[in-house]
Design a protein around this nucleic acid. Sequence first.
DNA 1: GTGAAAGCGCTAACAC
DNA 2: GTGTTAGCGCTTTCAC
Lengths: 350, 350
Amino acid sequence: MAAGPHGTPTLRDVAEGAGVHAATASRALNPATRGLVNAETARRVMKVAETLGYRPNPMARGLKTAKSGTIGLVIPDLTNPFFPPVVRGIEEVLEPAGYSGLIVNTDNDLLRERTQVDLLRSRQVEGLIVATALVDHPLLEQLHRERVPMVMVNRRPHGFDVPSTVPDDAAGVALAVEHLAGLGHTRIAHLAGPTTTSTGGVRARAFRNAVRDLGLDDDPRLTVVCHRWSEDAGAEGLRTLLDGDAEFTAVVAANDLIALGCYDVLSERDISCPDDLSVVGFNGMPFLDKLGPPLTTIAIPHQQIGAEAARLLLDAIADPTRSARSVLLPVTLVVRESTAPPRRCAGAVR
Amino acid sequence: MAAGPHGTPTLRDVAEGAGVHAATASRALNPATRGLVNAETARRVMKVAETLGYRPNPMARGLKTAKSGTIGLVIPDLTNPFFPPVVRGIEEVLEPAGYSGLIVNTDNDLLRERTQVDLLRSRQVEGLIVATALVDHPLLEQLHRERVPMVMVNRRPHGFDVPSTVPDDAAGVALAVEHLAGLGHTRIAHLAGPTTTSTGGVRARAFRNAVRDLGLDDDPRLTVVCHRWSEDAGAEGLRTLLDGDAEFTAVVAANDLIALGCYDVLSERDISCPDDLSVVGFNGMPFLDKLGPPLTTIAIPHQQIGAEAARLLLDAIADPTRSARSVLLPVTLVVRESTAPPRRCAGAVR
DNA sequence: GTGAAAGCGCTAACAC
DNA sequence: GTGTTAGCGCTTTCAC
């Protein structure tokens, strides 16, 4: 039986088995060129390929075509529950298109990001899906100048136009504020995300706008910026807020991790949620319904964000001249037990 | 300036730039063969490569050497918080070794698993790290017969010898049972994992052993097998237990998700945890400390399990004749608020 | 120590 | 419709 030197059958084995030239076998096996081949011949080739268990060698093909069939996924940390569903969404559209994703973690370290992107490029990825965008992001700007096909997920950089799929941050924050206002809260605080990220900035601005639109107290002291998207930073933020001299009965956290950080401070200072303080998160992480108390949050369509991003990237690869489309995905308010009307009797938290 | 037809400099560009033959440049650039080259020449070649920004094309190299520098990671579902840290552990050792991981999700579907493994093999992965092992697993057995280098993580199949890294399930369950016994529980139930998985079986046997060793009530009605490692299955399991006629004051869940399923039933039936029922999980998922109540669990070293697996696989690739080592990793009990002494006054749960 | 030559497995002109 | 030829970028004998 035919087989290459490494055991696996090669295209030539198939060709010989079918009594045709390798080129003909190649044409017959590729759906795109199959039409160029006599239907009968094609059938025979395919049959031989089947019985031999032939699988094309993507490295040989890639060497010839200068295409690897891989896409780089640049993620801060796969361990953050935000990303796995996004990745699944991405792969869900990459796979049928014949692409595979290559995941790298940057740990939010710009140096490491550079190295990892280099690694991806040396592996000849055909494009990048980037979840680590900062407002000011020299590396991404450089890649953009070099015409590397790429799409941003969740956040995007400023200063240059690049396709992206992001949740409707402004609508989400408005939903959260309206929900709290509807419960009777008038002094609502915001634990904003880092201003180095577009999401941090957009959500903070949306917060001020929502507060003003609803005629609530628009007190600048009620916004504290967290320097990271983490529990620690959230805890620190809430402590700052509590130690300040502005009263508030509810807090809109810029994401779920920041909200979780609040939970730590609440038990630390014996503040009851939602009795003393209502808390809203953002993202809709898994298992939020099992928390004590279950966290009210803005749910975003993780998987869809990923899928959309992959589609945009495939488009960009197919037609690099196409201008950068961006997709805004709808979010929903999920009400749970971390939000309730403010206490009548007692005053605000202090 | 020199550059290949696709813009990136090739080995020949470097060779020309350094005034040597491509073969010499190749030798100079590869640390393993650098000794064969005049030190001065080598230095010059490397300098030119540096200034040209040369990056070897892994597809060309792979085509020649029949090595892809990639490892397939076969995972049920990346969305399960168990796996991301394992993946990080894997990549932490793969990366410095010059390998990249290619992740696929099987969704616990054997057909899909076959397709995905095929995909990995067609991408010429040099080995597999498999987290989906079933006790009886024809596909894995076949791969084993075909001498595909592979390592199991977390679970392992029966019937053939294959390297694996698994947590010390027996010790973990013993720790859990001892903890509960120490609190005064004598009638402890077990929500076992699927018997199709080694972890399910091992933990269930360890449970019976621990109960007997401690002289507690060894009642077969106190073990219920969940048919999946999921919240749903856990909820269903606890309902079966509660609807049965055996009394118990504590339950050891075979993993955290099953324990989370219990939480649903507790609120559904207004049973207080830990007052009416103590619950222990297994795995040490993130955010367990924020649950209501925070879950006592057996923490396993996810990242280390992954790292160890990657090391075993690299060894197996380097020396395929080497016999299958397996690594058992230590686990620890993390006590939180879901466990407490059984209630004096009231009887057991019913 | 270095160059020449061949070839990994595939695809894409180009010829017939 | 099919075969011929050449070559993607690299490594690796084999000479010298």
